[in-house]
Amino acid sequence: MSADCTLEELLIARMAKEFRGEAMGVGATILSDLAARLAKALYVPELFLTTQSRAAADCDVHAKSLLDEWTLSSSARMALEWQEMFQLVAQGRLQIWIGAVQIDRSGASNISVVGSWDKPKVQLVGARGVPDDLWGCERLCYHMRAQTTRSFVEKVDFVCGFGFGPDRDRYGPRAARPGVVVSDLGVYDFDPKTGWMRVQSLHPGVTFEQAQKRTGFELLRPDGDVPVTPAPTPEELSCIRQVIDPLGLRRLESAEGSEALTLELWHRDPNTALARTQ
């Protein structure tokens, strides 16, 4: 990464570009949540933010906090009732970045279990809203924190959202198609002809061979030179650093993320003291 910005800042700026129009903009990871805020601040003022707590929905752009309810509350227009939320989802009004544990060549994703469902090798959190979001978006976008042969797999162990292939062919075009995938190495999309994952751009300094080595299937390569993921603009950087994340929560999804850092940021957060005294 260049000296001018961190990998996290590059990812936030890149993910922000996928939000458009008057829709619910959701980021299920810290970086993608920041991306939704950046998009609303700079590019998509009509974006409807529903972050961590749905009791504080359609809020303005605020600095991210580990106690978002206290922060967002001051400008939230409404509480988004879960039934209303899924009615918006059913009408395709959701744009979301999901933090998946596994993604495969066809764009199928998994956050439920590693290994067999009957007796998992690793029990994760359960399918949560992914099987629903699948039927409520145009595209599902994924933020994969670490690209490895265990997270970019030939076939997911459990299908939370399906990708291109027989399921999609059977149920038709109403289901979301896999959109954009970002990782610590690059940005990927899907070849419309084969439905297979292909490189859209690689981050500065990353080679195709490096990305391929950390992928459990054969990546499609774009024609000609592999594009480099664009660096954030000065305006984007200043918005990230001064407006939406002055506390530096983005560091929690960097290589320095740790329990100690989480606690440090929690203690330093002005809302922590506020929440304690109430």
């Binding site: 899924f86 059913a90 998994n110 439920s112 469902w117 399918a127 992914v130 099987p131 629903d132 699948l134 039927w135 409520g136 459990f158 299908v159 939370c160 959202g161 399906f162 399921d167 999609r168 059977r170 149920y171 109403r174 289901a175």
Partner: peptide
Amino acid sequence: RFGLGTGILAT
């Protein structure tokens, strides 16, 4: 329509 085609219908 939610859940259609996914693993949660097949456990």
